[in-house]
Simulated assay, not measured.
Amino acid sequence: MKAFKKRGALTHFQILSEISKQNPHLKQKDLAETLGITIQAVSENIKTLIEQEYITSKDGRSPYKITQKGIDKVKRDAISLRKYSDSVLETMNHYKTVWPAIAKEDLKKDEIVGLYMDSGVLYAHKKEEDATGVVLGDAAKGCDVALSNLTGLIDMTIGEAVVINLPTIKEGGSDKVNLELIKSVYEQGTTTGKKIDRVAIAGTVSRAVANMLNLPVTIEYAAPQATANAARKGLNVLALCVGDMTKAFTRELEEQKIKFDIIDGGK
């Protein structure tokens, strides 16, 4: 949107647009209230517009009149703004109406398919499900497929998280960790008995503990956010974190309304 790249260009467009309505009683106070800026800012912008010959005025005060040069500028800027708005709306409509999934089998264009979640991934297949969509293009099994006209509800249970707080290196690190406890939690699952789907780590001590127990680490970077996102998609996460890092996990999980438990992993 090149027309509005310069500082104050959008404000100039708005002022010219208001003046072009040919309101003979339009005052700087009215412009300030309409545009949500100060009267001083309006005054400075009007002075610039007069100097650039986009409007005319006696002594810089109302009534203001837009010149032909000003009218041409408003038209150009309005077209530029409309094109930009149209491109944004087109993009937003695309995001709203087209959804990606993984094809569970070979799918053909225009087929109506059933949708379901498994391990945090949306799948499409030819079997009947509560949620359906229409295939936009041929897709082979295992590939991504574009869908439209999604209807119904996708059955998805929110996952849980178990956050285990580990001693810092100053407190003894992995030497002071209750490895049997962590192994037991991983094998037995969450406090409600749900199987652990993902293991998250935050901190070097957590990495060492995961290595010692041969845990399959799948979440390491931006672990608090990733843990919450995984749980939102129905996955149950075991998170190992060191010292105060626990706070980031609890804050994120609370904000996302994810059920979680905190366990002291020290001996």
Score class of each variant (00 low, 15 high):
107 L>K: 13
107 L>T: 15
109 K>Y: 01
113 V>T: 07
113 V>F: 07
114 G>C: 10
114 G>H: 05
118 D>H: 14
118 D>I: 06
120 G>S: 12
122 L>R: 02
122 L>W: 02
123 Y>S: 07
123 Y>P: 11
124 A>Q: 05
124 A>P: 09
125 H>V: 04
125 H>M: 04
127 K>A: 13
127 K>T: 14
129 E>V: 03
130 D>I: 05
131 A>I: 05
131 A>G: 11
131 A>K: 10
133 G>H: 09
133 G>V: 06
134 V>I: 15
135 V>F: 01
136 L>W: 04
136 L>M: 15
136 L>K: 14
137 G>F: 02
137 G>N: 08
137 G>P: 00
139 A>I: 12
140 A>F: 03
142 G>M: 08
143 C>A: 09
144 D>P: 03
144 D>C: 08
145 V>G: 09
147 L>A: 06
148 S>V: 03
148 S>T: 15
150 L>Q: 10
151 T>N: 15
151 T>L: 14
151 T>C: 10
151 T>Q: 15
152 G>I: 01
152 G>V: 05
154 I>W: 12
154 I>L: 11
154 I>V: 15
158 I>Q: 15
158 I>F: 00
161 A>R: 12
161 A>F: 10
161 A>W: 03
161 A>Y: 14
162 V>Y: 03
163 V>F: 12
163 V>C: 10
164 I>R: 06
165 N>L: 08
165 N>Y: 00
166 L>R: 12
166 L>I: 14
167 P>C: 03
168 T>I: 01
171 E>C: 07
171 E>A: 15
172 G>R: 09
173 G>E: 04
176 K>A: 13
176 K>P: 09
176 K>C: 12
176 K>F: 06
176 K>I: 05
176 K>L: 08
177 V>H: 13
178 N>I: 09
178 N>L: 13
179 L>P: 03
180 E>R: 06
181 L>H: 07
182 I>Q: 01
184 S>Q: 03
187 E>A: 12
189 G>E: 07
189 G>M: 10
190 T>A: 06
190 T>P: 07
191 T>R: 13
192 T>M: 12
192 T>Y: 11
194 K>L: 14
195 K>M: 12
195 K>V: 03
195 K>Q: 11
198 R>Y: 00
200 A>L: 08
200 A>F: 14
202 A>K: 04
202 A>Y: 02
202 A>I: 02
203 G>I: 05
204 T>M: 14
205 V>A: 05
206 S>I: 12
208 A>F: 01
209 V>T: 04
209 V>I: 06
209 V>A: 08
211 N>D: 01
212 M>L: 11
212 M>H: 00
216 P>C: 01
217 V>D: 00
218 T>E: 10
220 E>T: 09
220 E>V: 02
220 E>I: 02
221 Y>A: 05
221 Y>T: 10
223 A>I: 02
223 A>N: 03
226 A>G: 10
226 A>R: 08
227 T>L: 06
228 A>S: 15
230 A>G: 06
231 A>S: 12
232 R>Y: 00
232 R>T: 02
233 K>W: 01
235 L>I: 00
235 L>G: 00
